[in-house]
Design a protein around this nucleic acid. Structure first.
Length: 1055
RNA sequence: GGGCUCGUAGCUCAGCUUGGUAUGAGCACUCGACUGAUAAUCGAGUGGUCGAGGGUUCAAAUCCCUCCGGGCCCA
């Protein structure tokens, strides 16, 4: 038997109850074991520093919804969560906590103490994050997350690095890196790009004298004068045209297109045009040769090199100062030409002894001096102030410098082609995320610097011999144990403990670990196998790998999507995931990203507190996944109203079904199919269509489509139409087949609907399942253990759906017509006329006539043709004064009156037939000409019309005694029902009623209907009198059509 | 500066693949109705140069180009 759910949607209390139920019955553990075919969902590990906001909640809710969905589809889903627990951001947090700022202070404190502090910080935050995620109702394996700080995880990363080395992809080399001179550390690219700021700098045009020429120069432009001591070449674009420009007695080479910009204010002459390619090899004298003696030793250097990639015409001179020690592009071109990597700058951002005159000076502070020197030597062509974006240290806000440093890196450029090939196999949702965005990113992939001169991270498993310089990569703890000089038992693989381990080199000397740790992105990039404990165990890996689905925000294109791919290719020469769903960002109502510093962050707890978890989920999951979600409280409010409708719909059904002790086993849909009415078949047809569409949306990872479709169905089709249609059937007292059929239909629709919303709103669906649908102990213990509904097209009836649409719109048009007639729906009317010749309309109305009569509250409905409509219309002729005025002059007024009184229809017909129409004014006869009149068509006063897609709908508003009495009856019934409700009587309670009416006539009208009224309001006795009344426990006065009525009721307990 | 993406009613967004009058949806506002789901519900009205400009076409919100503004990523 169907159970009754509580009347009010009280998310707060039942969500807590459901949490307890899940916990007590270990539902999520049970669901985890369900299913056959493997489905490896891999959670992108969040970084554990801040409390989560609604954006993170969106991410996890999406994951949770798909995990639940694929389980209902019969998959065994691996749902292990992950946490990213290493890295500089945590170090910075801990530094702040400890009140220290520099590496020196960390070393003074002791690496051991510092690392321990980082570890406990990360573990504390993991706990906070876990409970926040659990609190959202996200079902993941919270007891067994993968954590990047675990020894086993570190081992997996070690194995990967070893693998890279074996494949020849690991290399130690000089790389241009972003360097903070104040913190004396390399910064990862992403740490730099997050802190680009606008600053103003001097930009200078510098003359490089050509070798062997006195007054001929090639001109470069730079905003970083301090890199000029490291100049080794000038880059030009082979595809550009260059010009020799003569100004005074000197000649300059610049790109032709830049001549105007450089020399615009001077008198100049272009004396020669030279293609860029012809400039190749042209030798020049470096401008600071005297100041930086080291320059003389550089070889090969100081000539023109070519690059079609890095020389543009946007700014400068088209000739680019090249310092391979201070620029990535410079370095790259330098390698092609075998140019020396000259970098006379130390870790503190000061010139080294190689910097000659500038040795010991801070580079940025040397700008001025260098400019002065150039000016003195006559090599400064001109100088401007330029605003440009420049990277800053995100910790101390110092402008960064680019500098050459020895780093370990992965030669990603060598596996780029493989990545592009493998990317073709991935199913990206949306498609452009992979084809366009990710594809472009891979094409521009650069070698990946994986070493960091820091403390809290996976230590690079590279040991270097302090004698012969040979290095070795260790792939596991057991390998390390084997090769260790001193016996080790169990150690934490973090710094500094791992630093103490020395291994023996084949040359006989000791090898020490390089002091670097790995870039954190390598941690998360290893997740596809590290989360499976591979390679120290291979059972899990064999079962689950590769990943069936990942799902993250669009910032992860350069992040996790990418590093997972790189690591997968290194490890297995294969992309590690099959499907990627990319989602947008959550932004505030002004379109700005949510940032703590902006104070615009919304936390999921705030939403949950006010509206509950399901409301938050329905809202977020209903937003287009890959677009940005503009979070507004108003939309949450709206969503919460929908949750109310959903709840009320189930409440309504559960109330009547349980009252009538409806048994879905006894009256299955199959058993009652012969009793089904048109509206039942219609909603069942709609349901099948819904199941089909929702299934396809979910399979395509478009949950937002599913949400929208489900919402539309619930509001427009189920709640506002079907339930309205069957309401009367649910009021009958007996075991009426019509009522049973409605219940069986409702049961089918609501139960299947419940299964479909379960992945999206897991709490309310569980609550309803437990209290309403789980009628037998052999039914699955949780809604989340049910199978996803299937669709067989058994009930699909497209014609019926079309017919219903026609009828629905016609009924709505009738309401519209009533409104213009000021005729309430409660008042029954004689007839409804629909003007149409459309076969669809005729057949729809004939099939669904009962629904039209019932919903439009009319006695008859007929479809009439447009010709019949014409007949129905009255035609009025109105004189056209501007025409008749000049003709009839003084008689105009009488003529107008006479024309107005003519029978319009007849006159028009005569005119159409070419007959002459004569009218008489003051005994004089005139012929009526067409232009004398304007034709006004109107329907009789008693008819009111309204248009809809399927034709005009007219209602006949004339009322006879019977209609008036019926209308009055409905009014009286409504008032009594209202009073029953105010008196909080049960819906099935019996009452006694006293009615005081204003007149004898009205008393008569009511007496005619007393039987019907009594039946509808469940009155055992009813008394009607004129005037006020004294009887009844509940009494009230009412106005009906402007007249005073008095009604008293009281419960009748006699039985 | 480059790549991707978004821009439609006061607000949040459908529609764009495949060109055909935006009867666009919900919310908000105004008016009205309904009432055995009831702090619910229904109907009607007001409200758009579909970011701007150009092109293709008989016809453009939709296809093409340029520009402007937001977001993410990169430099």
């Amino acid at each position: 038997m169907i159970g009754e759910i509580p009347k009010d949607y009280d998310a707060k209390s039942f969500e807590r109850e459901i949490f307890e139920f899940w916990k007590k019955e270990k539902i999520s553990e049970k669901a985890r074991l369900k299913g056959n075919e493997k489905f490896y969902f891999l959670d992108g590990p969040p970084y554990v520093t801040n409390p989560i906001h609604v954006g993170t909640a969106w991410n996890k809710s999406l994951k949770d919804a798909y995990i639940r969905y694929f389980r209902m589809r019969g998959y065994q889903v691996r749902d292990q969560p992950g946490f990213d627990m290493h890295g500089l951001p945590i170090e910075v947090m801990v530094e702040k906590k400890l009140g220290i700022k520099t590496k020196k202070e960390i070393e003074a404190l002791g690496i051991e103490n510092f690392v321990n502090a980082c570890k406990s910080f990360a573990l504390d935050n993991l706990k906070v994050a876990t409970s926040q995620f659990q609190n959202l109702g996200v079902w993941m394996d919270w007891e067994n997350p993968y954590r990047t700080l675990d020894n086993s995880y570190i081992e997996s990363v070690w194995w990967l690095i070893k693998r890279a080395n074996e494949r020849g992809l690991l290399e130690k080399g000089n790389k241009i890196v972003h360097w903070c001179p104040r913190c004396e550390t390399v910064l990862a690219g992403y740490e730099a790009t997050d802190e680009y700021r606008e600053i103003e700098d001097d930009s200078i045009y510098v003359k490089f004298r050509l070798e062997g020429k006195e007054k001929e120069y090639i001109v470069i432009w730079t905003t970083t004068p301090w890199t000029l001591p490291a100049n080794v070449a000038v880059m030009v674009n082979p595809d550009f045209m260059y010009a020799k420009v003569s100004v005074g007695d000197e000649t300059y080479i610049v790109a032709e297109d830049r001549v105007g910009a450089v020399f615009g204010n001077e008198k100049y002459e272009v004396v020669e045009r030279i293609p860029g390619s012809k400039l190749s090899g042209l030798k020049y004298i470096p401008p600071l040769l005297e100041e930086v003696p080291k320059q003389r030793e550089l070889y090969p250097a100081h000539f023109v090199v070519l690059s079609d990639l890095y020389v543009s015409l946007e700014e400068g001179t088209g000739c680019v100062h090249t310092a391979p020690g201070h620029g990535e592009e410079d370095h790259e071109v330098g390698e092609i030409y075998g140019l020396p990597d000259f970098c006379p700058v130390d870790e503190r951002g000061r010139f080294t002894a190689d910097g000659g005159k500038y040795a010991g000076k801070d580079v940025r502070e040397s700008n001025r001096e260098i400019i002065e020197d150039l000016k003195r030597k006559g090599l400064l062509l001109k100088m401007e102030r330029t605003r440009h974006r420049y990277p800053h240290c995100w910790r101390c806000k110092t402008p960064l410098i680019l500098r050459l440093a020895t780093q370990w890196f992965i030669k990603v450029t060598e596996i780029k082609e493989r990545m592009l090939e493998e990317n073709e196999k991935v199913d990206w949702v949306p498609e452009w995320a992979g084809k366009a965005r990710f594809g472009n990113w891979i094409k521009n992939a650069k070698d990946w610097v994986i070493s960091r001169q820091r403390y809290w991270g996976v230590p690079l498993p590279i040991w270097v011999c302090n004698k012969c310089g040979r290095y070795e990569v260790i792939g596991s703890f057991s390998e390390l144990k084997e090769k260790a000089v001193d016996k080790i038992v169990e150690i934490d693989l973090h710094r500094p403990w791992v630093d103490y381990v020395k291994i023996r080199c084949i040359c006989g000397h000791e090898m020490e670990r390089v002091s670097d740790v790995a870039d954190v992105w390598m941690d998360s990039g290893s997740a596809s196998f590290a989360s499976l404990y591979y390679p120290s165990e291979s059972k899990e890996w064999e079962k689950w790998w590769p990943v069936d689905m990942i799902l993250e925000g669009h910032d992860q294109t350069r992040g996790w999507f990418y590093t997972l791919m790189v690591c997968g290719i290194i490890a297995f020469d294969s992309v590690p995931y099959r499907r990627v769903l990319m989602h947008g960002f959550t932004i505030d109502q002004d379109g700005r990203a949510m940032h703590k510093s902006l104070g615009n962050v919304v936390y999921p707890e705030e939403v949950i507190d006010k509206y509950g978890r399901d409301t938050l989920r329905w809202y977020e999951l209903g937003c287009t996944t890959w677009e940005d979600l503009k979070f507004t409280w108003k939309s949450v409010e709206e969503t919460s109203r929908f949750m109310g409708i959903l709840w009320s719909t189930y409440y309504f059904a559960s109330l009547y079904m349980s009252l009538d002790k409806f048994s879905p086993e006894r009256y299955s849909l199959g058993n009652v199919s012969g009793w089904l009415k048109d509206e039942d078949r219609w909603i069942l047809s709609r349901l099948e269509c819904l199941i089909k569409n929702v299934t396809s949306s979910m399979n395509g990872l478009r949950v937002f489509e599913a949400v929208r479709e489900l919402e539309y169905f619930m509001k427009e089709e189920l709640s506002r139409w079907y339930i309205k249609l069957i309401r009367k059937r649910t009021w009958t007292e007996t075991e009426d087949p019509e009522k049973i059929a409605a219940y069986a239909t409702l049961y089918e629709v609501l139960f299947n609907y419940l299964k479909m919303v379960a992945p999206i709103v897991p709490f309310v669906s569980e609550k309803i399942y437990q209290e309403m649908f789980r009628t037998r102990p052999d039914m699955p213990i949780s809604v989340h253990m049910l199978e996803w509904p299937s669709f067989e097209e058994k009930w699909r009836d497209v014609k019926l759906e079309e017919d219903m649409q026609v009828v629905k719109e016609i009924v709505e048009a009738s309401y519209s017509a009533r409104q213009s007639a000021r005729m309430k729906t409660r008042q029954p009317l004689r007839r409804l006329r629909v003007v149409s010749k459309d076969e669809r309309v005729i057949s729809a109305i004939s099939r669904l006539k009962k629904i039209v009569l019932d919903q439009a509250n009319v006695k008859e409905v007929e479809v009439i043709s447009p010709e019949e409509e014409e007949k129905m219309k009255e035609i009025k002729l109105v004189a056209n004064p501007s025409v008749i005025g000049p003709i009839f002059r003084g008689k105009t007024k009488s003529v107008a009156e006479i024309i107005g009184a003519l029978n319009g229809k007849e006159v028009l017909r005569s005119l159409r037939d070419g007959k002459t129409v004569i009218f008489e004014v003051d005994g004089e006869k005139f012929e009526l000409k067409k232009e004398y009149v304007t034709v006004q068509e109107s329907v009789p006063e008693s008819y009111k019309g309204a248009g809809c897609r399927f034709g005009t709908v007219y209602i006949d508003t004339t009322k006879d005694k019977e209609l008036i009495s019926e209308g009055l009856m409905r009014d009286v019934i409504r008032r009594i029902q209202e009073m029953r409700k105010r008196a909080a009587l049960k819906v099935d309670a019996y009452i006694k009623v006293w009615i005081g009416v204003p007149s004898e006539e009205i008393k008569g009208l009511i007496m005619d209907k007393i039987k019907e009224i009594s039946a509808e309001v469940r009155a055992k006795e009813m008394y009607v009198s004129i005037g006020g009344i004294e009887k009844g426990a509940y009494k009230d006065g009412w106005q009906i059509d402007g007249e005073e009525f008095f009604i008293g009721i009281e419960e009748d307990r006699s039985q």
